[in-house]
């Protein structure tokens, strides 16, 4: 599926003004909710056997949405559900709301199934990792509403060009295509989805692809010609920024996991508690 459209990017104003923060969230809470939501989507997508382009699309839609909306007004879990559902339709690999809801429930209830698992205590309390019919209908209604809320917030502009296949083209052009190299590239590109700098909202796919290739080539000790990124319309400054951003994701994720051993505040009540706590802490 080729498209000449470039991705809509966040403006500097949008990056500077966060609706969540205007709504009383501290910056660290916002960063963490973004990370947790993106990670939940990635893990759920894998369990749902959705292809990575679908998962990446969902994460990008999720992040674009919270560029324009507040985590306090639109609870994170329903947005994760809806982003997955919408992305699955957009990429012609439709997933069922029931499966999406069951999978996130499973992920949030199962200790160490993923970095997003919250308190182990709940699992210990014997709550099953299934969703009863009542809860299912509740989540489903919210999912469907959130789907349109996302479309509305994005002005139905859902185009999400991805860098994955571009890296293949670039590596081919540079005559360095190999499986280990490609796997590393894809690893960096998937990591980059979790970056607190929202790399996919600030850069076009060609720059992301070049940065991933740069890092992968370095890891694999592949020599590339001087200034090769210019062939792909990427300038040095952007490349440097993205390379730094991609490299720091691992450390960022480690710090988030450490900070949120008990799980991030997924539900509205937990979030309100967290907001209150921070408010008092600051005073």
């Amino acid at each position: 599926m080729v498209s000449l459209l470039s991705n809509p990017l966040a403006t500097s104003d949008q990056l500077a003004s966060s609706p969540s923060q205007s709504d009383g969230l501290t910056p660290d809470l916002e960063v963490s909710l973004r990370w947790a939501g993106s990670t939940l989507i990635q893990s759920a997508g894998i369990l749902l056997r959705l292809p990575q382009p679908t998962i990446a699309t969902a994460i990008i839609l999720f992040q674009r949405f919270y560029l324009l909306a507040s985590f306090r007004s639109f609870p994170v879990l329903a947005t994760c559900h809806a982003a997955l559902y919408l992305a699955s339709k957009l990429t012609e690999t439709p997933a069922k709301p029931r499966n999406i809801i069951n999978v996130t429930k499973y992920l949030l209830k199962t200790p160490s199934a993923s970095p997003v698992s919250p308190a182990q205590k709940e699992a210990a309390e014997g709550e099953g990792a299934y969703v009863d019919e009542h809860m299912y209908l509740y989540h489903r209604t919210r999912l469907l509403d959130m789907e349109t809320e996302i479309l509305k917030a994005l002005g139905y502009q859902t185009h999400t060009g991805l860098p994955y296949t571009l890296t293949i083209n670039y590596a081919q052009t540079l005559d360095c295509l190999s499986k280990p190299l490609l796997l590393r590239c894809f690893g960096y590109l998937t990591d980059a989805l979790l970056s607190p700098s929202m790399l996919y909202l600030t850069h076009q796919p060609n720059a992301l692809a070049a940065a991933a290739l740069y890092l992968a080539a370095r890891d694999e000790k592949v020599k590339l010609p001087e200034g090769w990124w210019e062939m792909f319309d990427v300038d040095r400054e952007d490349l440097g920024f993205l390379v730094a951003g991609m490299k720091s994701v691992e450390e960022f994720v480690r710090s988030q996991k450490e900070a949120w051993g008990d799980g991030v505040p997924w539900d509205e009540k937990e979030l309100e508690d967290a907001v209150r706590k921070r408010l008092h802490g600051a005073e």
Binding site: L201, H203, V234, D235, F241
Partner: peptide
């Protein structure tokens, strides 16, 4: 804003990253 030249968005992001997480003062 396409990557042929540096996008304003990423510029903003850069300064934000380098300095602190504080909200940039200049508004729309």
């Amino acid at each position: 804003a396409t990557p042929t030249t540096s996008p304003p968005a990423s510029k903003r992001q850069k300064t934000r990253n380098d300095a602190s997480d504080a909200i940039a003062p200049e508004r729309a």
